[in-house]
Design a binder for these strands. Structure first.
Lengths: 115, 115
DNA sequence: GTAACGTACAACCACATGGTTGTAGGAAGC
DNA sequence: GCTTCCTACAACCATGTGGTTGTACGTTAC
């Protein structure tokens, strides 16, 4: 594993947080620009409290951070969280490639056995 | 978006499927070698039915495929599914980099305004 | 000071999820 | 044939999730 510092629970939270279209949209938006929680809430056809919960889920997954500014709470995208998730999937791809290489090797040995 | 052919529901299923440690372990294993469902069930401290459900979740997320062989059902890792997930995260990184580039441009313009 | 705004949080509801046990059916072994 | 193995699926239960409304509190504006 490349990302050894991240616990299974954290990975659970990470992927769980990404498994909702509204939350993915929030992440995409706050990676581009800053939004207050209420600013985000205006964008979706649901209550403020619902959006607030989504932001909380993303925050627990380290995909966004909140910073108090006056009476507003500014939400920013946390690229590290996204990269962690991406690296985990890279690990799977690496595992798979190793397998493919191994099979290729075996086939090569078999070919040598032929003669 | 790079992966335009994949629906929001499919993305939901994809990340949802990856948001469980047992399921991630199953994916990692079946990417390396073939397992029957009962072969997988032996590995975990839970009922056969529970493992069967996990496999079903992974199958619906296109992360594994099942193939009947005799009385067994062989589970194989589906690398395309993993790559789809990874590409989605690449999109976020791309969004973020565009933003960083844009900010860098603005800063450069400001620097020119200085003199 | 007071009204309006932005946020936090609790309580509640419907529904999905992760687990269990039990039942049933097809394939392999004897 | 009969038994055993592997699988599928239904029913059930506890818990979590995504949504709602209502209440409370700090901050800004007037």
């Amino acid at each position: 594993m490349v990302v050894g510092s991240i616990s299974e629970d954290e990975v659970d939270r990470l992927f769980r947080a990404l498994a909702d279209a509204t939350r993915r949209d929030i992440v995409a938006r706050v990676l581009v620009a800053e939004y207050s929680v209420s600013g985000l809430a205006e964008l979706y056809d649901m209550s403020f409290a619902a959006v607030q919960k989504h932001v909380a889920v993303l925050e627990r997954a380290s995909l966004v951070t909140k910073e108090k500014r006056g009476r507003e709470q500014i939400v920013r995208g946390e690229m590290d969280g996204v990269q962690n998730a991406r690296r985990l999937l890279d690990d799977y791809e690496r595992i798979w490639r190793r397998r493919v290489d191994r099979i290729t090797d075996i086939l090569a040995e078999d070919a040598e056995d032929e003669h």
